[in-house]
Design a protein around this nucleic acid. Structure first.
Length: 922
RNA sequence: GCGGGUGUGGUGAAAUUGGUAGACACGCUAGACUUAGGAUCUAGUGCUUCACGGCUUGGGGGUUCGAGUCCCUCCACCCGCACCA
């Protein structure tokens, strides 16, 4: 009997489905284990072989944990809201719900092909009203909450109102405006609109303003990467920054907790480091400078208050609110021209062209608080409006960019570092002492910082300050295909649907006839007058961003059909946080940070019992495409083979990988591929057309996409699963090479032949030999270890070694082969199920206990030692493990080869590392 | 510019704590069986040398009896980014 993967896989997939083998209950005496994949966006292109890499790894782990007696939650769903579906709708008029449904269907078929053990009864889709009802509900929770800095947790806004009624805001500074101050009486005297305006400054979900790229010609708002060189990427139309009302999440209030609780997570250091850098905590001081002949003051944040005597100029972000009012008449034209220039620059360009120094002088001066000197105020794009206070005190002798700026604009430089500053390069190290700085002179940096802060506080011009570079998260998108906000504006003041009490969630996305943007940069929803205008007022027409639905989906899987709450507390208490989360590094700071914040907020408000969503995180690498190229002789329709391309001037063109076997092009298929190639001629080498190859991102446009369906059809899901794992470590990127799959397929066929020959089942009940048991138990030990460490590539190797050895021993014994079948079940579930049933078992293999190794089969009594002379291995000798060092030394020194290499010289040192090696030093 | 990652045969890679570098595969070479081979099996395969041997984990330096692994330094490539005061 041949290994008939097609029949086997079909049969067992049907069996699993019929018996609901992968259905998971929330009620169980077993310990729980939650294995989660980052759910996919169902794109129109379908899955390629890169997508399932992480899914296969998590599937192996989920199956393994189930074998080990856990109740395993292993769900899958779809991140189904998103821009591509809307873009497609714009182009074709097809409703995103329709195309999304089609894409999901395709994804599901592709996933089912691979034999995953997902509990599909728990599937979630973020675009399903039953799901986004709760996304909207969580938004309302955030809206109705504020962050109590003293208690370090979110609390209901109603409690804040009570506090205001009793004591005003004296003990609870507004995170947006620290100058805001009122008493209980003042609070009570305010009208509702004013009170709501104040509360908005505290809410975790709040309305504010932000600048977006607005393109008049396209009539739409563009994302950062849709803007290049100050024009739209599509069409090259001019764009300007437009200030719009936008919702935000006050994630900055969570900065400290998001930072400190990283310590308790089992994530890679690289991942934690990226989050730390993103949160960007820095300590320093906030200092206020008074603008001469004006009531204005400029507030700066600095990490180096000790260098305050080195301030030679001030720089404001071009967007800074004071720029207008302090610019002098004489400088007005220049400043305006500069701002116009900055307006045209994208953030990417500002970043890429760091060396380019630009700026303009406002004509204004501030008074230095300690020296009393006049300090000029400049504006420059190197200062960002969004970070700190949007203004800096520039110390050219101590900061590289300030230094370059001063040199460029001929501003004189005050040296506050003595000998350390050489006049050519800023001295930004923290060694040495501060000089030329009045009361700070002679002090080392840390002391000087403390003294400077003390003096600043005494003068009443500032205080010590912790700053985070994390910004609040924009939560509005001017798009159609996303969650609508359950918000209505009554005379311009936003009210939520539960406050108005006029409608239940979900607020469903209305049908639109056109996906074109609304007027003035609003989303398509603004075009539907019937929907926008309600008896209470106008609806919010923005929708929520992609990360809204994905910030909490892992909770919904625990109780996916609940209509009374987002997930029952009993369910979330049972499943707790995700034990293993697998996905790509591209989500390092976006999705993973937002999910953490939502989890903390839901925890603070008492809705769930844990405050971190993902205990352990595994990052999967990218599977790259291996592109193939053909070489067309320039100006002709003649193609030369790779090795001969040097003889001609050629154009390198992508050829579809499906027409290439290894590197050999199927020239007939190529001719049929595109009409312009129908008459192509080929210059061959050795009778073949050899293609060039390069590793690139797997993408349709590079014709290097490999569809898992094709691989599964040819080799079977089990081969595909094992090959993806065999490619290399899960976390590194590697190119896909279909050719290599043969080896894994051969291995499965070879393993199959341990159990079957041409006439059928051949397993016997004979007693196993020590050698066979040793191979089996070595393998069991290695596989268990490897799975725990996510080293699946080495597991596959070990299975190969095991089968190679058992084959050469001619092993046919049930005592060996039955445990081996269970052992391979997480990797090749259909294959294992077939063998498992071959032994007469009538339950599914996944409920079989996973084999555990017994050390008694692995004991060794001796070791074949490499003998090195001066570190170079020269001979081998076998010794019992318990032999004395002295006896070994005697025998080694007597060895002929050793003697030869010693060349009569006396041994200086004899190194014996038991069970490792022996080294003789001459 | 900043942050993170990766460099080992023709290719994907392996190598508990520093202890025989290249396991396991792909590819390639030769052979066996076969009507056939894109089935299966056997042998070989890092580079170099007729050979003894020498060289070899991105380059250079260091620590050590011994370094892919630890330290310093330089280089290349990939990913992310918000010039972070």
């Amino acid at each position: 009997m041949e290994y008939a993967h097609r029949d086997i896989e079909q049969k067992w997939q049907q069996y699993w489905k019929d018996k609901e083998v992968y259905k998971v209950s929330n009620e169980s005496d077993k310990p729980k284990y939650y294995v989660l994949d980052m759910f996919p966006y169902p794109s129109g292109a379908g899955l390629h072989v890169g997508h399932p890499l992480g899914y296969i790894a998590s599937d192996i782990l989920a199956r393994y944990k189930r074998h080990r007696g856990y109740n395993v939650l292993h769900p899958m769903g779809y991140d189904a809201f998103g821009l591509p579906a809307e873009q497609y709708a714009l182009e074709t008029g097809q409703h995103p719900a329709v195309t999304t449904e089609q894409n999901i269907k395709r994804y599901r078929e592709q996933l089912d092909n691979i034999g995953f053990c997902y509990d599909w009864s728990r599937e979630v889709r973020t675009s399903d009203p039953k799901y986004y009802k709760w996304t909207q509900w969580i938004f309302l929770q955030l809206f109705h909450s504020w962050y109590d800095r003293a208690a370090q947790k979110a609390r209901p806004i109603s409690e804040l109102v009570s506090i205001f009624e009793q004591e005003g805001n004296a003990n609870h500074t507004s995170p947006e405006d620290e100058k805001l101050s009122f008493t209980a009486d003042e609070w009570k005297a305010k009208d509702e609109t004013a009170q709501r305006g104040i509360l908005m400054q505290y809410r975790l979900a709040y309305l504010s303003h932000a600048e977006v790229w607005w393109c008049e010609a396209l009539g739409t708002v563009l994302a950062n990467d849709e803007v290049q060189n100050g024009v739209s990427e599509r069409g090259g139309h001019p764009v300007v920054k437009k200030r719009m009302n936008q919702w935000f999440l006050r994630i900055t209030e969570y900065a400290e907790r998001l930072l400190s609780s990283l310590d308790k997570l089992d994530w890679t250091d690289a991942m934690k480091e990226m989050q730390r850098n993103w949160i960007g905590k820095s300590t320093g001081a906030e200092v206020t400078f008074n603008v001469n002949d004006s009531n204005s003051e400029i507030k700066v944040f600095t990490t180096r208050p000790d260098t305050i005597f080195g301030v030679d100029f001030m720089v404001l972000a071009p967007e800074h609110e004071l720029v207008d009012s302090i610019t002098t008449e004489a400088q007005k034209a220049e400043v305006e021209k500069y701002i116009e220039y900055v307006q045209s620059r994208s953030e990417r360009e500002r970043m890429a062209e760091v060396k380019q120094i630009t700026g303009a002088f406002t004509g204004a001066y501030v008074t230095h608080p300690f020296t009393g000197n006049d300090v000029p105020v400049w504006i420059s794009e190197y200062v960002l409006a969004g970070y700190g206070t949007g203004a800096i005190m520039a110390v050219p002798s101590g900061d590289e960019r300030d230094h370059a700026f001063a040199k460029h604009f001929n501003i004189s430089i005050t040296n506050v570092f003595g000998d350390k500053y050489n006049g050519e390069e800023a001295y930004s190290d923290k060694g040495g002492t501060i000089e030329n700085s009045d009361f700070l002179s002679g002090k080392p940096v840390s002391e000087a910082i403390a003294a400077a802060i003390k003096a600043i506080v005494e003068k009443g011009i500032g205080q010590a300050k912790v700053n985070y570079k994390l910004r609040d998260a924009g939560f509005s998108r001017q798009r159609y295909w996303g969650e609508p906000f359950p918000v209505i504006y009554k005379e311009g003041v936003p009210y939520t649907s539960d406050e108005l009490g006029n409608e239940e969630l979900p607020l469903e996305l209305p049908h639109v006839d056109s996906y074109k943007p609304g007027p003035e940069g609003q989303g398509p929803l603004a075009n539907i007058a019937d929907w926008v205008n309600t008896p209470d007022g106008k609806r919010e027409t923005n929708t929520m961003p992609g990360y809204a639905g994905s910030s909490w989906y892992f909770l919904r899987y625990m109780d996916p059909h609940n209509d009374a709450t987002f997930a029952d507390r009993k369910a979330t208490d049972y499943w707790q946080a995700v034990d293993i989360y697998i996905g790509g590094t591209e989500h390092a700071v976006g999705h993973l940070l937002y999910s953490r914040m939502w989890t903390k907020a839901l925890h603070d408000l008492g809705h769930i019992g844990f405050d971190e969503p993902f205990k352990k995180l595994i990052n999967q690498g990218m599977i790259q495409g291996s592109s193939r190229f053909v070489y067309r002789i320039h100006g002709t329709n003649k193609f030369v083979s790779y090795g001969l391309r040097g003889d001609h001037k050629t154009d390198k063109l992508h050829a579809d990988v499906s027409m290439v076997d290894g590197n050999v092009l199927d020239t007939e298929a190529f001719k049929k591929w595109k009409p312009e190639y129908a008459d192509a001629e080929f210059v061959l080498e050795d009778g073949k057309y050899i293609c060039g190859s390069e590793t690139e991102k797997m993408s349709k446009s590079k014709y290097n996409v490999v569809n898992p369906d094709d691989i599964v059809a040819q080799y079977g899901a089990d081969t595909f699963r094992m090959y993806e794992m065999f490619l290399g470590p899960i976390d590194v990127s590697k190119p896909w090479d279909t050719k290599g799959i043969e080896g894994v397929h051969r291995f499965l066929k070879k393993m199959w032949r341990l159990y079957n020959d041409d006439n059928g089942w051949i397993v016997t009940d004979e007693k196993a030999t020590d050698a066979e048991l040793k191979v089996l138990h070595q393998t069991i030990k290695k596989i268990n270890n490897d799975i725990e460490q996510f080293s699946f590539n080495t597991s596959v190797s070990q299975f190969m070694i095991c089968v190679n050895e058992l084959s050469s021993m001619g092993c046919r014994k049930k005592e060996i082969l039955e445990p081996l079948a269970v052992l391979i079940a997480p990797f090749a579930p259909h294959f294992a199920e077939e063998l498992w049933h071959g032994f007469g078992n009538d339950t599914t293999v996944i409920d079989a206990a996973y084999p555990q190794h017994d050390d008694k089969y692995l004991v060794e009594s001796s070791k074949l030692y490499p003998i090195a002379i001066n570190g170079k291995p020269r001979a081998e000798m076998e010794f019992p493990l318990d032999m004395d060092k002295a006896d070994i030394e005697k025998q080694v020194m007597a060895n002929e080869t050793v003697q030869k290499w010693l060349e009569g010289k006396p041994a200086k040192k004899f190194i014996y590392v038991p069970n490792k090696m022996i080294n003789v030093v001459v």
